[in-house]
Amino acid sequence: MLEVKDLHVTVEDKAILNGLNLTINAGEVHAIMGPNGAGKSTLSAVIAGKDGYEVTQGTILFEGQDIFEMEIEERARAGLLLGFQYPIEIPGVKNIYLLKAALNAQRAARGEGEIPAPEFMKLVREKSAEMKMDPSFLQRAVNEGFSGGEKKRNEILQMLVLQPKLAMLDEIDSGLDIDAMKVVASGVNSLRSADRAILLVTHYQRLLNHIEPDRVHVLVDGRIVKSGDKELALELEARGYDWVLEESAA
C-alpha cells in the first residue's frame, strides 16, 4: 500500500530524514517509535504534504502512485489521512461543514454523487456516539475551545467518517487521560481491516497496549535502525532507547 524508498528530507536546510525505507501492506498496523528529534513526525507530515519540508531524494508510492505528484487534497481523497499531534482551531467553520465537504470531495473523486443529507446525518451521529462526543460538537467550530482530549477525539471522528485507506496518527496519545485514550484507541481499532492500514507515530509504548501493532520500527537520526513485532515496543519501554542507539552505532 505504502512504499517509502530512500527518503531524504530537510527542514530549513537541516537534514531530518536520511534514507528512510518503509513498506506498509494492507491490513497492517505499524508503529514508529524513537527518541525526540529522530524525525518521527516528519515522515507523516511529508506524506500528508505539509508545508516546510523539502524532499531532496527518494520516493513515496501510495498504491503504486507517486504521491509527490499529488496535491494535498488529492492525497487525502485517495485515502491518506493524517491525524495531527496539535489539531488547529478553525474558528467559525462548523465540524459538520468540514465533515460534509470532505466526504463529498472524496466521493466526487471516486465519481460518486453527494451523500444524501439523511444518510450523512445518520453517519455523523453514529460516529460521534462511537467517539463519545455529544452531537452538539457537530455544530461547534472545528476544535475551537475544545480540550486537548476533545481535539484528539475529533481527529479520530474525522477518520471514522472519511474511512482512510492509510490512517497516520501523530502522537495521538499525547495529552490524553486513560479514559480518553481508551475511546481514541477503540476508534482507531475500529478502522482496522484487511484492506486498510494504520501508521502510529508515538513516543511511548502505552498507546500500543490499546492498539496492538503488527510491526514496530525504531527511528533514529532519520533512519529506521531496528524493526520488530510488538515485543520490540515492550523492550523499548523496559530498556529505553540507548541500547538501540548503541546497537546501531556498532
Partner: peptide, 26 residues
C-alpha cells in the same frame, strides 16, 4: 487553516470559501 481543510480532501477554493463564511459568521 487552509492547509488543515485541504488535508481532509477539501480543495483549495472550497477551503477558502468555508473560511470566508466562517469569517462573517461572527
Amino acid at each position: 487553516a487552509v492547509y488543515a481543510l485541504r488535508s481532509r480532501g477539501i480543495d483549495e477554493p472550497m477551503a477558502r470559501a468555508l473560511l470566508t463564511l466562517a469569517f462573517v459568521g461572527e
